[in-house]
Amino acid sequence: MEEEKQFEPKIAAFVCNWCTYTGADLAGTSRLKYSADIKMIRVPCTGRIDPVFLIKAFEKGADGVLISGCHPNDCHYNTGNFHARRRWILFRQLLDFVGIDSSRVHFSWVSASEGKKFVDVVTEVVNKVKEKGPFTRYAKINKEFVIHE
């Protein structure tokens, strides 16, 4: 129990420049607090989020991933998020099939004006990942060839 309390998850958040990133900014300027466990990575569009980014995040030790962008029909590039959505539907189930629990991967639409929603999403994601605990299977294969001095 003691250990669980101390677990600070590492969560990589890939967010689009035009909506969610601006939403997060709004949360900041409105002085809304959100967890520092989220490491934000800004990308131009959800359509730019190659699934390999998620794998890389897990390789680098992430316990969870959040992907967030503009609501449908609000994409700065019109269709980026529609294409992305289709890929996620496929990719989530592939992750599950190879044993990467897709409940570690969260998705949301957060617009530039939804500072509050952003904070709520982050809180929920952090709690859910905390519940799941550290992602030990990646941690294990990450130890291969690590030098012990």
């Binding site: 449908p72 269709t79 529609f82 294409h83 959505r85 289709r86 996620w88 539907i89 989530r92 969260h106 998705f107 949301s108 639409w109 999403v121 929920e124």
Partner: peptide, 12 residues
């Protein structure tokens, strides 16, 4: 391609 009605029940 994509469809406007693609499933999004996993998206918050």
């Amino acid at each position: 391609t994509y469809n406007l009605n693609d499933n999004e029940d996993f998206i918050k």
